[in-house]
Design a protein around this nucleic acid. Structure first.
Length: 308
DNA sequence: CCAACAATAT
DNA sequence: TATATTGTTG
């Protein structure tokens, strides 16, 4: 119907992120402060956190409240009045009981983190990662590694991948054979697919038979089976600075260039930790509307802009 | 044991 | 519904 259809992937090819584009992009969903406060181990600040662990005890409840207040700490005078109408006096504060009277044992570990919201940007990185990995290697762990989004867990990716695969299958189905009466999905443009539609789907995704895009697979050959072996080379320890992390993608942390594999591999410990609060990283905004849609739940949103 | 995947839960 | 969590399997 559209001629664009014929060359959409020509353009797609051009728009393919070069490794340089993809690699150094290390975003973070968790600020150092937040990580520390919650006893979260990110790949960078291991040691710092360890120290904090000792002093972490009865503060759990306080921690939570602190988080909410710390939102958007410094944004060069943000006139956006990002006031947290967070019911600091409603949810847990006054109920007094969080869960079931946790006596004061490792609280942070028990708490849950906010639902990840897959913005088009995030999904884009996801698709790019999958595209560059090829179907075979496109498994949650490797995808997660390539995406290099700090705070993103393997399960986040796994869950998303599961749904994405269903989406691909649906597309295959209706592009291949007559529409039949299936009536299963119906509209491809259903609201459910909007996210996925926001990023072009690499052609070979639909053709498992065809060998992967060996076309462009520059280097990013993630050693998927790389077992833990290397301790963080202490490449860059996050100092308790109140700097903005989200802006500097250069990955020039100490004047040293970070390799993707060398840099993000201490994520083994990143498992369940909790933080039922928003994450104060500037650049990340919580989408009130999404939250509303969810029934007033708090949701962490990355990149409110749906623009590609 | 860990990770992927599918199924189920919220 | 979208994402999380759990269960099962390799």
């Amino acid at each position: 119907m559209r001629e664009e259809d014929s060359n959409w992937f020509s353009r797609w090819e051009e728009e393919l992120p070069s490794p340089e584009d993809l690699m150094p992009l290390s975003q973070t969903l968790i600020t150092p402060d937040l990580a520390i406060a919650f006893n979260i181990k990110t790949n960078n600040n291991n040691n710092i956190i360890q120290q904090q662990q000792q002093s972490l005890h009865l503060q759990q409840q306080h921690n939570i409240q602190l988080q909410q207040q710390q939102q958007l700490p410094t944004t060069t005078s943000n006139p956006t009045t990002q006031h947290q109408q967070q019911p600091s006096s409603g949810d847990f504060a006054d109920s007094g009981e969080l869960g079931s009277g946790n006596g004061g044992d490792e609280p942070a570990r028990t708490l849950k983190r906010p639902r990840l919201v897959w913005t088009p940007q995030l999904h884009k990185r996801f698709v790019d990662a999958v595209a560059h990995l090829g179907i075979k290697n496109a498994v949650p762990k490797t995808i997660m590694q390539l995406m290099s989004v700090d705070g993103l867990t393997r399960e986040n990716v796994a869950s998303h991948l599961q749904k994405y695969r269903l989406y691909l299958k649906r597309m295959q189905g209706l592009s291949g054979g007559g529409s039949g009466g299936g009536g299963a999905g119906g509209g491809v443009d259903a609201a459910t697919d909007h996210l996925f539609a926001s990023s072009p789907v690499p052609p070979h995704f639909l053709q498992p038979g065809r060998s992967n895009s060996d076309h462009f697979m520059p280097f990013v050959q993630v050693p998927a089976l790389q077992h833990h072996h290397q301790m963080a080379a202490a490449a860059a320890v996050q100092q308790p600075q109140y700097h903005r992390q989200v802006g500097h993608f250069g990955s020039l942390q100490n004047g040293h260039f970070e390799h993707p594999f060398m840099s993000r591999q201490s994520q083994h410990q990143l498992h369940r930790m909790g933080a039922p609060v928003h994450i104060p990283v500037d650049g990340f905004v919580e989408d009130k509307e999404s939250a509303n849609a969810s029934g007033g739940r708090k949701v962490l949103t990355l990149f409110p802009n749906g623009d590609d």
